[in-house]
Amino acid sequence: MNAIMVMELKKHVQDRGLLFWMLILPIIFTVLFIAMFTANTDDATRQQVILSIVPGYVVMFVFFIMISMVSAFIKDRDKGMTTRVASTPISPYFYLLGKWIPFMCIVIIQVIVLFLFGRLVYDVPLGQPIILLILSIFLTFTVTGVGLALAVIVRTENMGIAITQIVALGGAMLSGLWVPLEMMPDFMQAISRFLPQYWAHQAFQDAMAGNIVFTELMQTLLILFGIGIAGFVIAILRYPFFLKRAVH
């Protein structure tokens, strides 16, 4: 597993596109949208917008790692690397874990950098930093777990990109990452409760304000963990089919 992890990390470090998608673009969007939504507003409103946009955009942009995950798996499949690795003693579980863990590292770095950016530039409060870190780790697990499942299910990179857009942008819209949830119709508010983005966003906001309660936190962590595990199980179950497509 270490071999796969080391190789993946080396490739990611050299990938400048990843740096753009994971850090530069979210920062640009955060700055632009905060500027747009806080123009001609009073300080209280401004603070409220910032407190929603910073964690909201963190939650939205972490989902874009799924594109890189799909791309990594499809490239490996198409150039024969999946088949080649299957001829070695490494088990499918360790192969998947070896590919998965580096992406988790990237996302956790992304979340930390984006929160630090919010702190340094917009002075957002980080009321419960340890809880924020725990939430970040669970969100990372969820997003990359879903990404892993998607990566072994989709047949083409374009299909992966399309589904990621739907999951990331659709989920962001429905979970109140763009517009405050209270302003959305009731049925959309009901749908949002089925989405990990909603739970992560709410918990991040509460932890930043320093008033997240234990049961709420546990509920959120359980939901995020459950979705992540479901992703990994799906990936394990689908891997033989993915390998079949790679072999033929």
Binding site: A3, V6, Q14, K79, G80, T83, R84, P89
Partner: peptide, 30 residues
């Protein structure tokens, strides 16, 4: 599998990694 060395028809190398890096990768897999 440890007794077998498989050389596929496709070139399975990481293009942006050195020759030694690619060999290390496959060595570590074993």
């Amino acid at each position: 599998k440890e007794q077998i060395g498989y050389i596929p028809q496709d070139i399975c190398l990481e293009e942006d990694i050195s020759a030694a890096g690619n060999l290390y990768f496959f060595g570590r897999l074993y």
